[in-house]
Measured scan of single mutants.
Amino acid sequence: MTSCHIAEEHIQKVAIFGGTHGNELTGVFLVKHWLENGAEIQRTGLEVKPFITNPRAVKKCTRYIDCDLNRIFDLENLGKKMSEDLPYEVRRAQEINHLFGPKDSEDSYDIIFDLHNTTSNMGCTLILEDSRNNFLIQMFHYIKTSLAPLPCYVYLIEHPSLKYATTRSIAKYPVGIEVGPQPQGVLRADILDQMRKMIKHALDFIHHFNEGKEFPPCAIEVYKIIEKVDYPRDENGEIAAIIHPNLQDQDWKPLHPGDPMFLTLDGKTIPLGGDCTVYPVFVNEAAYYEKKEAFAKTTKLTLNAKSIRCCLH
């Protein structure tokens, strides 16, 4: 018999989150649709729960009410004593943790798909938090293969000092899905179709896995975050240069030392320094102006996964 890495157990509980950011409308629209008619997301033997994560922000069509829901799922915020004085999103995070967690427990949901849009030209993107997770690498390989020839990129946010504390991190297997470009507060049919297909293929993978299909060893190309880059700023902290036209919409493309990065209003080009080629992502993302992030630098690498098969009882 072929030796293989056996994944822990079959997958039982899956959640699909929309509206973690209330103005990213593809996930909101799909989740609302699936709450009314969820036939397309159901798979035999699998509990799939669509869920609106930040209903107040969705109602106002804004990213958040008090603070970013997708950055506060750490033990400090989840452990705060519940009171009306807490920011709305912290209270909501505790409610979500109660419903789908608790985080880092045996009772937490197996998989959470968190649906997002970006204003950046990132196409279909899967966000991975753990480079050693054979199950998710296999799932992402399946999704990428199923979507081809449509490109699907994998963004690895594993980093020693950049801690995200994402909404989906309460699950055993957290999956971020990011599709763009799409303006905030807008629905685009092409973007919706791409996100819908990503979810379909992900659920198909889980179904095949649960039925005992063995997935042979595989490898995927990923883009691992190195650092986030702020806009150049003046002495008052105001933005002093904008994304250069040569960099705009060039997510995932190589940016070499000396290539144009920013452009000042008086026409001066600010190039990339250093001696390493990087791959920019979230270029000129609207939501990241407040976070002082013009783009993120990534490096390209390959992740390998062992063969996996479900432990059938």
Rank of each mutant, 00 (worst) to 15 (best):
S108V: 13
C218Q: 04
D74K: 10
V14C: 10
I157E: 08
I177D: 02
Q248I: 13
N304R: 09
I157C: 08
R63G: 09
K163L: 13
A296C: 06
L156D: 04
V154E: 01
D107P: 12
L247E: 02
I111Q: 02
E95K: 15
E24R: 02
S105V: 09
E24I: 01
P50Q: 02
C218T: 08
R132T: 12
K103P: 10
S3P: 14
N70L: 12
A93F: 15
Y279F: 10
D74A: 15
E9F: 15
P102K: 15
L312W: 15
H256V: 12
P151I: 05
K291Q: 08
E285Y: 02
I177A: 03
Y64P: 05
G267S: 06
L192Y: 08
T2W: 15
L99Y: 11
N23D: 15
I127V: 09
F262I: 00
K81L: 10
V90M: 12
A39D: 10
G27F: 02
K144W: 04
D249I: 02
T20F: 01
W34Q: 02
K172D: 04
K49R: 15
K60M: 14
C67K: 13
F215H: 03
G273A: 11
N284T: 04
P50M: 04
A148S: 14
V229E: 07
I65E: 15
D74N: 14
V154T: 06
A294Q: 00
N23R: 04
L147V: 09
G123F: 04
S146N: 10
D66F: 06
D110N: 06
D107Q: 06
K297S: 15
P280R: 02
V229A: 07
R92W: 05
P50G: 05
R63S: 11
K172T: 11
E290L: 10
P181M: 02
C61S: 12
G176R: 15
F51R: 04
C218F: 00
F73E: 14
F51A: 08
L128H: 01
V28R: 08
R63D: 06
Q182W: 01
L126N: 00
P254G: 07
K200T: 14
I72Y: 08
E214M: 07
E221V: 03
C310K: 15
E178W: 08
I170T: 06
S120L: 01
K81N: 10
L69I: 12
K200S: 09
A15K: 03
Q184P: 15
T299Q: 15
H159K: 13
V179I: 15
F29Q: 12
D230W: 06
F140H: 04
R196P: 01
N133Y: 04
P87C: 08
A202D: 00
P280V: 03
L162F: 15
D259H: 06
P87L: 15
A93R: 08
P217T: 07
G45F: 04
K200E: 07
G180Y: 01
F262C: 00
M122C: 12
G176H: 08
P181A: 05
S105C: 12
I220T: 05
P217S: 10
R91E: 13
A93N: 06
T264V: 03
D249S: 05
N134A: 11
F51L: 07
E221W: 01
I170L: 12
S131C: 07
R168W: 08
P151T: 14
D107E: 12
N77P: 10
I308Q: 04
V90L: 09
K292V: 15
D68W: 03
E214S: 12
R168S: 10
Y289F: 15
M82L: 11
K81F: 13
D110A: 04
Q138D: 02
Q194A: 08
N121T: 06
L46K: 00
S3T: 08
L303A: 04
V186L: 15
Y88L: 15
D110I: 00
M198N: 02
Y153E: 13
Q42W: 11
Y279S: 02
E129G: 14
L187S: 09
L46V: 10
G101Y: 05
V229F: 03
I191S: 04
A39H: 15
Y289G: 15
Q194M: 08
I270W: 05
N236F: 07
Q94C: 13
T125Q: 00
V175I: 06
I96P: 06
A148W: 11
F282G: 13
Y223L: 03
A202T: 02
D190A: 06
L192C: 13
L255C: 15
L312H: 09
I170R: 07
A57L: 06
L75W: 13
A294C: 04
A296Y: 08
I6W: 12
A219I: 06
D85Q: 08
I308K: 00
D190T: 09
V28N: 06
H208Q: 13
T44W: 09
F205C: 01
E238I: 06
N246V: 08
D251N: 10
D234K: 15
K60N: 07
V154W: 03
N97L: 13
I220F: 04
G273W: 05
L247T: 01
C310E: 05
P183G: 11
I226T: 15
F17M: 12
K228Y: 15
A241T: 04
V48N: 03
V229S: 04
G273F: 07
A202I: 02
D74I: 06
G19F: 03
W252M: 10
E84N: 07
T302R: 14
P160Q: 12
P55V: 07
L255A: 05
L162V: 09
L265V: 10
L126H: 01
L156T: 06
D107T: 12
R132S: 08
P260L: 04
Y231V: 02
